[in-house]
Design a protein around this nucleic acid. Structure first.
Lengths: 148, 148
DNA sequence: TTTTATGCAAACATTTTGCAGTCAC
DNA sequence: GTGACTGCAAAATGTTTGCATAAAA
């Protein structure tokens, strides 16, 4: 717990420096959105971020700010957005190596995974089609352990 | 060309029988939406389907009808919807074996592909997580041959 | 003639935008 | 003090729904 706190603090410091260097301004909203994404390994919607800010941190935040901020984060490549298929975008911090998702069609739980074989094969497939791979998403739908 | 016509005609006949058997009613709207999806290997949005109906077939169709019809088709498993990430759902006929998509981030072209290695590996990954795989989507983003 | 399908418009949900005021630097 | 950021409300976007009419069986 303490360890994560520490990690987050340095991550936040680093991020704030980047923001300043780019000529943008820091704000408590940016801080809290990062904090919320950092300490919730869920994949959160804009509305959920507002709700968590309010209940867990007693911070009121306009939803427009959340949308603008996560878009800003996406451009800086520290946040990914993902489309579960229900018409609501969810956001996750882009800290670790690339990963994909398994989504339970019953309880909507999102499980992250990474597989090198698939990653490699994707590169081959792209190459075979003369396609320059920049990114990919892969989502497996099914039943999680608990819902079977 | 003639061959495809023939194929489509028998496909359509077959579909119409299914609709009748299930107690639903056939309509020219259903026919045209199928026809449009069949003869356009693009992945069409509801709005595009309405536009093509109007310009290519001189058929006016309400967009609500298109949404209802593609949902109906999805339930019968003859149409898949896909989320390119721009907030607009696109629809494709589900005729062939499973395939995935490469999307060019410049010209938005959609290229279909199928790869057995990836399919197999997905099964393994799911199994390792005690996850019962039902479906998956995989989309590769990058630059197509023409846009490089 | 009964039931489903259609088209329109209104409703809806999510996301974006304009603007006036606020805050960071 | 300047320029970016915020929050609100309005607008925009994509999709769904209610209802009266039309068409299929």
């Amino acid at each position: 717990m303490e360890k994560y706190e520490d990690n987050f603090e340095s991550f936040l410091e680093n991020f704030k420096n980047t923001v300043s260097k780019l000529g943008y301004k820091n704000s408590i909203q940016k801080d809290y959105i990062l904090k919320i994404l950092y300490f919730n390994d869920d994949h959160l919607s804009a509305e959920q971020i507002v709700a968590i800010a309010k209940t867990n941190y007693k911070v009121d935040m306009g939803i427009a700010t959340v949308y603008r901020t996560v878009k800003f984060f996406e451009e800086l490549n520290i946040v990914n957005s993902l489309d579960v298929g229900d018409g609501v975008k969810r956001y996750e911090l882009n800290l670790s190596l690339h990963h994909d998702h398994m989504i339970c069609t019953l309880c909507n739980k999102i499980i992250e995974f990474h597989d090198d074989v698939i990653e490699e094969q994707q590169k081959k497939v792209a190459k075979n089609s003369n396609f320059i791979l920049k990114d990919h998403i892969m989502t497996i739908y099914g039943l999680c352990k608990d819902c079977q």
